[in-house]
């Protein structure tokens, strides 16, 4: 039986020599967490199912550092690796794959040029093409035919895609965008709730369910994980295939092994 995946996310600052892992709080404040490949090896030991490296400071000079970090990790850790942040062109994707990445994750560049999703999927395969969607709730009073309105406990809302690491908003409806990227060949969606990211209040279950209901590709839930219980809930109440978390693992609040033991004890199928 296919296991639910637990994915630690390494938010990396490649602007320092060798790169380092940091964690943003609500996409703004940044704390230091460790050397990327050391953390990667530790997570492998603990039973992580995959790793995501997010370059939160993506710029041209730093791509070499990213390639170095992925190479160092991939030569030592044998599990799927995803690189996100700073993938703007097919060439950036190629560089990540050559360094040993298995998937790239695109957000900003895909929202600016949606054909990039087709191009990555066609050249490297759908399985290598992950689209990251950073979605924020926009509460509404009345129905809006142009939006997919969801009834939530807090009221009716639609979900707006953000880009540039949460600094700008697009006006794009996240639920519609999810359907579009699947049609364009994306093999997986990494869905982050901007309302929950960094809060440790738990995943946005309503957002996650709404996206899972609309696509047939795997969805990784992200944003808001502060307790093992939050991961249990996202698997119990939504059809998410994986849960992504950063700070609860980085700061050793819980090990992945502890989280998996807890999930098993609560009837969630994990490796």
């Amino acid at each position: 039986m296919l296991a639910k995946r637990i994915i630690p996310c390494l938010d990396c600052d490649f602007g320092v020599p060798g790169g380092r892992v940091v964690k943003g709080i609500e996409f703004k404040q940044i704390r230091y967490a460790g050397i990327p490949w050391d953390l990667a090896a530790e997570y492998d030991e603990q039973g992580a199912d995959e790793l995501v490296f997010l370059d939160i400071t993506a710029s041209h000079e730093r791509r070499e550092t990213m390639a170095h970090v992925i190479e160092k990790t991939a030569s030592n850790v044998f599990m799927p690796l995803t690189v996100g942040g700073g993938i703007h062109r097919l060439e950036d994707a190629r560089r990540a794959f050559n360094a040993g990445a298995d998937k790239v994750s695109v957000n900003t560049a895909a929202l600016k040029n949606s054909k990039l999703v087709n191009d990555i999927a066609r050249r490297f395969g759908s399985q290598a093409c992950m689209v990251a969607i950073d979605a924020k709730r926009r509460y509404v009073r009345s129905e809006d035919a142009a939006r997919e309105i969801i009834e939530t406990k807090e009221g009716k809302c639609w979900f707006e895609c953000s880009f540039y690491g949460g600094r700008k908003f697009t006006g794009v409806d996240a639920l519609k965008w999810a359907i579009e990227v699947e049609e364009r060949g994306a093999g997986e969606i990494m869905l982050t709730s901007m309302d929950r990211d960094g809060t440790k209040d738990g995943f946005d279950l309503e957002l996650t369910s709404a996206i899972c209901d609309r696509v047939n590709i795997p969805v990784i839930a992200s944003g808001g994980c502060g307790l093992p219980e939050h991961i249990k809930d996202v698997f119990k109440f939504t059809d998410a295939s994986a849960a992504l978390a950063a700070s609860i693992f980085h700061y050793k609040e819980y090990t992945i092994r502890e989280v998996k033991q807890y999930l098993k004890a609560n009837g969630i199928h994990v490796r």
Binding site: A3, D49, G187, E188, P218, D239, S241
Partner: peptide, 27 residues
Amino acid sequence: RVPHMGWNNLHLQRHSELLDGITDADY
């Protein structure tokens, strides 16, 4: 959901040296 993406366990059907030491509990 397609692709089948992630860790899944095998159901061994017959012996093969390729899977020596591997059981149905391995992902």
